[in-house]
Nucleic acid binder design. Structure first.
Lengths: 207, 207, 207, 207
DNA sequence: GATGAATGAGTTTTCATTCAT
DNA sequence: AATGAATGAAAACTCATTCAT
C-alpha cells in the first residue's frame, strides 16, 4: 500500500547488492551468452542464489533488465546525435556505437538477433531504437548521404550483421569489426542507381 | 530379436543408419539449432539413442559431421564457379549460395559464428572454403570488380553477417536476406577510393 | 525512520502487530491451508517478515497459536452449552459449531486430522475440548439420547469426519456438510441395540 | 511407428524397475502423502531420479498412476459385490474396503478429498466408482435397507469421512476406524422417518 | 522493535552419455 | 550392431529462517 520502503529509497546494502548483481550478470551474459547459469552469476556477484531472485523475479527478467539498460544507453547516444552538424557522421557514429555493444556482449547478440522475441519491454525499447535510428537515417537520406530506400530499421539490423561478420575474428583481432562497419556503411551510402531487390522491413515486423 | 535384415548385411545396415542419422540430424539442427536433443534426433531418424553414439562419439562430433557436409557442399559449389565466364556474377553466386545455407540452418549460424571454434576438421574445412573464396575473389579483384583489399575470407565472413542482419525478419519475410546481400555486395564492389580502416583478416586467424 | 508511532508506545505497537498478524494468519491459513508462506501472511498483515518471527519463534508456533485460538473458542461455545435445557440439542449445536470451524478452515483440518500431532499446547487444548465434549455427551447419554458407548472424544473426532465427507462438494455446495452432519448424528443417536465393534478411544490416545 | 519395443513387450529389467518404482512410490505416498519428493521415491526404489521420469512423465503422472491403481482395485471389488446375496452386507463390504484404502494411504486421502481435482483420468475413475457405488446402494435401497435419499456418491464420500474421523487414533489404534464405520453405517441405514436437511450431491459435482 | 535483504537447502525436471540386454 | 533403460549432474526457482540496518 505505502510502498516497499517508507521514503521510496531502498536500503543501501540492497542497492549495493543490486548493483553488484547487475554488473556481475552483465559481465557473465556478455562473456557467456544467455546460457550462463544463475548460479554462476550469483557466485560472480558474491551473493547467494536466492538474492538473485529477490532482485529479479526470474532469469528472463534479469536478462531483460540488462538488455534494456544497454538499449537505453544506445537510444540516448542516438538521441544526442540527432542534432549533430554532420548527419552522415552522426549516422556512422550511431552505427559504431551499436556495433560496439554487440561486439562486447554475446547475450545481446543472442537476444536481439532472434526471430521471436518475447519480452514486451525489450520489444518496446527496440521499437524506440528503430524510431531514433529512423530520425538519424532520414536526415542523412534527405541530403542524399544514403541510398534512397534505406530506413532506420535497416541500420539497426545491420549492427548485428557487422558484429556477426567479424565474430570469428574478434578473439584474435578485437577491432576487426571496424573493417566490416566501413564496408557496410559504404553499402548504405553507395550511389549505385540500382534499387535493392527486396523492400525495406516494415517497422513492426522486427520483433 | 537378433535376426538379420533380409536385404542387407549388418554392415550395410550400419551404413544405412548412418545416412538416416545424418539426414535427421541435419534437419533437426537446421530447425532447432545446436540445442536439439539427441533424443529428438534419434526419434526423427527412427533409431535408438544408443545408435547415435555408436556412429558418433559425442553430440559435438555429430554436429561437426553435419557442418562438414554443408561446408563441403558449399566448397564444391564455389569450385564450380571458379571457371565461370563472369567473375563478378560468380562471386555473387557464391555469396548467395552461402547465405542461403546460413538462412536455412540455425545450427550452422550458431557454430560458425562463435569466436572460438574447437573442432579441427571444421576449421580445416573453413580454411578450404576461404581458399576457394579467395580464388573467386581474386578473379573479380583482378578485373576491378571488387575493391582492392577485399579477400576471400572477407567474403566468407560476410555470409554470416548478411544472415544475421536479416535474422529478425526471416520468420515474417523469408526472403529479406536478399536486400542485405545486395547492400553488402555493393559495399564490396564500391569504388570509393578510400581504404577500409582495418586490414583484411589473415587467413588462419579465422577460428 | 526510527520515529515513534504518535498514538502509542513501542509496546502497544507490538500488541497491535501481534493482533494484525494473528488475524491475517488465521485468514490465510483458513483459505490456503498450512502451506501458505510466511511471506504471504506478512504481506496480508502489512508487516515485515522479520516481525512474524519476532512474535512467533517459527511458522509452526504461529500456526499453533491460531489453532489454539479456534480450539478455545469452540471450548467456550461448548462450555456455554453444558447448561442448556435440551441436552440433545446442545450436543448437536456443539457438533454443528465444530464442523463449521472445520469447513471454514483448511489448516484446521490439516493440523487436527494428522496421526501424530506434535505441539503440546494444541494437544492440551484438544484434551480440554474432549473433556467438555464428554460433559455434553454424558448429559445426553444419561437421558438415553445417544447410544450407550458414545464418548465426548467420539463426538469431537466426528467433526473432522463430517467435514471431510463433504469436502469435495463444498466448492459447489457450501452447505452440503449439513447433510452428513445429520446423517452422522443419526448414527450417534441410533438405538440399534447393537454395540459398536470397536471400543471408544481412550482419552489420551488422541494425539 | 512400429512401437517402442518390437514385440510389444518391454524389457524385463525395465519391467522390474517399473514395478520397484510403483511399489516404492505407493509406499512413500501412503506414508508421507503427496509431498514426498521424487528423490525419496527414487532412493526407496533403489534407482536414479532420472529413472523415475523415464517411467512417468512427471510427478503428477506417477501419483495419478498409483491413485488409479487403487481406485480400479476398489471398483473391481465393488463390481464383484453387485451380485452378492445380501445387498446390505455387500454395501457394508464395499464401504469397508474403501475405508481401508483411505486408512492405509495418506496420499489417497489428500488427492481424493480435495475440492478441485485436476487429473482427468482420476476424475473419470471416481465417476466410475460412484456409478458402481450407486448400483450397490440402489439394491440396498430397493429393499429398504438404507434410508430413502442415500446415493452411491454419498457412500463414496463417507469413506473419506470415516477415515478422517479415526485419523488421530490410527497411530495408536490401527483398527479404530471400524468403530466409526459402523456408526456411519448405522446413520445410513437408520429408519428415522426424517429426511436429511440437505439434498444428495449430484453425481458430477464430485470432482 | 521492526524491517526486509540475504541465505542455502531442497524441489522438480532435462539430457548427454554409459551399459546391460 | 542396435536398443533404450539407467544415470546423475546440472538448471531455475521457492521459502523458512537469520541478521544487518
Amino acid at each position: 500500500m505505502a510502498g516497499k520502503t517508507p521514503a521510496g529509497s531502498a536500503r543501501s546494502d540492497a542497492v549495493r547488492n543490486r548493483r553488484l548483481l547487475l554488473d556481475a550478470a552483465a559481465e557473465a551474459f556478455a562473456e557467456g551468452g544467455v546460457e550462463v547459469s544463475i548460479g554462476e552469476i550469483a557466485q560472480r556477484a558474491g551473493v547467494g542464489k536466492g538474492t538473485v531472485f529477490r532482485h529479479f523475479v526470474s532469469k528472463d527478467e534479469l536478462l531483460a533488465a540488462i538488455m534494456l539498460g544497454m538499449l537505453d544507453e544506445l537510444i540516448d547516444t542516438a538521441s544526442g546525435l540527432t542534432t549533430a552538424d554532420d548527419p552522415g557522421a552522426a549516422l556512422k557514429g550511431f552505427l559504431t556505437a551499436g556495433v560496439q555493444i554487440f561486439v562486447r556482449d554475446r547475450a545481446f547478440c543472442e537476444v536481439i538477433g532472434r526471430p521471436s522475441l518475447q519480452h514486451a519491454e525489450v520489444r518496446a525499447a527496440i521499437d524506440r531504437l528503430c524510431d531514433v535510428a529512423e530520425q538519424l537515417t532520414a536526415r542523412a537520406r534527405d541530403r542524399g548521404l544514403v541510398r534512397p530506400g534505406i530506413t532506420g530499421t535497416d541500420v539497426a539490423l545491420l549492427m548485428a550483421g557487422v558484429q556477426q561478420t567479424a565474430a570469428p575474428l574478434l578473439a584474435a583481432e578485437p577491432q576487426a569489426w571496424r573493417r566490416y562497419l566501413d564496408l557496410v556503411f559504404d553499402g548504405i551510402t553507395a550511389s549505385t542507381g540500382r534499387e535493392l531487390p527486396y523492400p525495406p522491413p516494415s517497422h513492426l515486423s522486427l520483433a
